[in-house]
Amino acid sequence: MYKYISNYIPSHKDEILDKWIQRMKEEGDERVSKIVSDQVYIKTSSEFVDVILSRLTDSNREYEEKLEGFAEGIVRLGWPLSFVTSGLSTLGRIVFEGISNDESITPDERLEVFSVYHNWMEPMLNEIIDAYTSTWERTVSLQKIALQELSTPLIPVFEKISVLPLVGTIDTERAKLIMENLLSGVVKHRADVVLIDITGVPVVDTMVAHHIIQAADAVRLVGSKCMLVGIRPEIAQTIVNLGIDLNLIITTSTLRKGIEKALEMTNRQIIQLEGLN
């Protein structure tokens, strides 16, 4: 009966794929069908069916390579694990329906086929989930390492004035790294004024504000002053709505205004010379 399955699925691949794509779009995760083009959706769906067929026809090594490549692809596209599990379940129903309508086998043979098919599909589901999760964990780990490597150092822009540009989401782990870079940079560059630029921070909630206040307090403890720059209107509104107290921190809407203010605080100013553009 395993031979029957290994012949049935490849010979009905196009029909199975068409039904699978249609049902996944009707029943599947809308996050997937809406954010990708039909071409990408069809290509990835075809690869999914190819992976399943590979378990029937290819060697273990070839199957594992295809499975790993497929897992990396859908993780890169940002497709959720639910797409994989529901996809395999949908595929199982389609194949069951096809076998049920196949009049070339007897009812007893059909029951035996169903039993063999179930025993074949169940371990494959675990294999695909394991491949997806291991790829996802590896991807997240690499992204975290990359984020740490890019975690902004303190940049001296003028004598005694440095800028710490923040980009992306700030969690507790990253906040600790930012604090370390900030304090070591203040001492290294002998900065009297530090500008924390949050222009690239998408969301400022209570936790992010708490980390910024802690950073400002730490800078004051080492004898420097701290400014918060790049406060967009929506961020200002959020800060007010959350009741976050930034009274002890000088704030400006842009980095340019912050630098002008920092120059004043260090007894300097920008002067426009006549005759120069």
Results as ranks from 00 to 15, higher is better:
residue 65 E to T: 14
residue 69 G to N: 12
residue 69 G to H: 03
residue 69 G to W: 02
residue 71 A to F: 02
residue 73 G to L: 09
residue 74 I to V: 07
residue 74 I to Q: 02
residue 74 I to F: 02
residue 75 V to M: 06
residue 77 L to K: 12
residue 77 L to Y: 15
residue 77 L to F: 14
residue 78 G to K: 13
residue 79 W to N: 01
residue 80 P to V: 09
residue 80 P to D: 12
residue 81 L to A: 05
residue 81 L to W: 00
residue 81 L to F: 01
residue 82 S to N: 04
residue 84 V to M: 03
residue 85 T to D: 11
residue 85 T to Y: 05
residue 86 S to F: 07
residue 87 G to P: 04
residue 88 L to N: 06
residue 90 T to D: 03
residue 91 L to H: 07
residue 91 L to V: 08
residue 93 R to T: 07
residue 93 R to I: 10
residue 94 I to Q: 10
residue 95 V to R: 02
residue 97 E to V: 00
residue 98 G to Y: 01
residue 98 G to D: 01
residue 99 I to M: 13
residue 99 I to E: 06
residue 100 S to Y: 15
residue 102 D to A: 09
residue 102 D to W: 07
residue 103 E to P: 04
residue 105 I to P: 00
residue 105 I to R: 03
residue 105 I to A: 11
residue 106 T to M: 01
residue 107 P to M: 05
residue 108 D to R: 08
residue 108 D to G: 02
residue 108 D to S: 10
residue 108 D to E: 14
residue 109 E to Y: 03
residue 109 E to W: 03
residue 110 R to I: 03
residue 110 R to S: 04
residue 111 L to Q: 11
residue 112 E to Q: 14
residue 115 S to A: 13
residue 116 V to F: 15
residue 116 V to P: 12
residue 119 N to Q: 14
residue 122 E to C: 08
residue 126 N to H: 13
residue 128 I to K: 03
residue 129 I to R: 00
residue 129 I to Y: 00
residue 130 D to V: 12
residue 134 S to V: 04
residue 134 S to R: 15
residue 136 W to S: 11
residue 137 E to K: 03
residue 140 V to I: 12
residue 141 S to H: 08
residue 141 S to Q: 13
residue 142 L to S: 07
residue 144 K to Y: 04
residue 145 I to W: 02
residue 145 I to E: 14
residue 146 A to M: 15
residue 147 L to M: 14
residue 147 L to W: 07
residue 147 L to Q: 13
residue 149 E to W: 10
residue 150 L to C: 09
residue 150 L to Y: 13
residue 152 T to G: 11
residue 153 P to W: 08
residue 153 P to T: 04
residue 155 I to D: 10
residue 158 F to K: 08
residue 159 E to C: 09
residue 161 I to F: 09
residue 163 V to F: 05
residue 164 L to G: 02
residue 165 P to Y: 10
residue 166 L to F: 03
residue 168 G to K: 00
residue 169 T to L: 14
residue 170 I to E: 08
residue 172 T to V: 08
residue 172 T to W: 06
residue 173 E to T: 12
residue 173 E to Y: 09
residue 174 R to C: 08
residue 175 A to M: 05
residue 176 K to W: 04
residue 177 L to G: 04
residue 178 I to C: 06
residue 178 I to N: 08
residue 179 M to S: 15
residue 179 M to E: 15
residue 180 E to A: 10
